[in-house]
């Protein structure tokens, strides 16, 4: 083992880690925003409304993330229409392709988590809202969604860490995230063990930071439940 390569290359690994962090945070935020309407539509008793989220969630949870990455990065460019559309400046960038794919993917999972959380709210609270004469919109905005976010926080934290791990796939579409950077360095130094282990440690540190962050968030959001 030649650990000096780590000393030489860790600044570049840190660059990669920064890209990884951007991927996870941006896709995580977009995912939550998209997941709210998705979960509400999924809860609708109307077959015509809940068929779309049902299909969407089924597709994105039933296929490998790698296939989704390839579909969006290489797949969409098969069509002239897309290559000439106004979306192309975004879709030609591996960075945005990665964020779009990760966001669409995590949306499906967050929507399911959110649906579970909404269903876990005690019926009495819903009834109380109705008795007070709240409209459905106000009820969701003021009571149900904030409650659901509190309930889903630990599960959402897990999902973010899964996305941190999933973001490594961005390296397969030329993006220099932490894994991509590691592979590029190894292509030059031929020291896979050292560099992959160094990258692995960085992933561990990032995932611990996320865990701590969500634990703190949980304390703020759910302080009323603490004894």
């Amino acid at each position: 083992m030649d650990w000096s390569v780590i000393a030489e290359y860790y600044p570049r690994l840190l660059d990669g880690a920064w890209t990884t962090l951007q991927l996870v945070v941006l896709s995580g935020v977009i995912g939550v925003i998209l997941a709210v309407p998705m979960a509400l539509a999924r809860l609708s008793p109307n077959r015509w409304i809940n068929i779309f989220p049902y299909t969407y969630i089924f597709f994105f949870r039933g296929t490998p993330l790698l296939i989704q990455v390839f579909l969006i990065y290489y797949g969409l460019s098969q069509f002239e229409v897309i290559r000439e559309s106004i979306l192309w400046p975004f879709l030609r960038e591996p960075y945005w392709c990665a964020i779009i794919t990760l966001a669409l993917h995590t949306t499906a999972y967050i929507a399911e988590i959110l649906r579970g959380a909404i269903q876990a709210i005690p019926k009495g609270e819903v009834e109380a809202c109705r008795v007070m004469g709240m409209s459905k919109f106000t009820m969701y905005r003021r009571i149900l969604l904030p409650r659901a976010f509190g309930i889903m926080l630990p599960a959402y934290g897990n999902e973010v860490i899964l996305m941190l791990k999933g973001s490594a796939l961005a390296s397969t579409i030329t993006l220099l995230d932490l894994t991509g950077m590691a592979r590029t360095i190894i292509a030059r130094t031929y020291t896979p063990e050292e560099i992959y282990i160094a990258a692995g440690v960085m992933y561990l540190v990032i995932s611990w930071l996320f865990m701590i962050f969500f634990k703190m968030l949980d304390r703020v959001f759910n302080r009323h439940r603490l004894a």
Binding site: Y74, S77, R83, W88, R92, T174
Partner: peptide, 11 residues
Amino acid sequence: EAVYLDLIAGR
């Protein structure tokens, strides 16, 4: 091959 794919795609 992936380089060719992206040349064709115009990336």
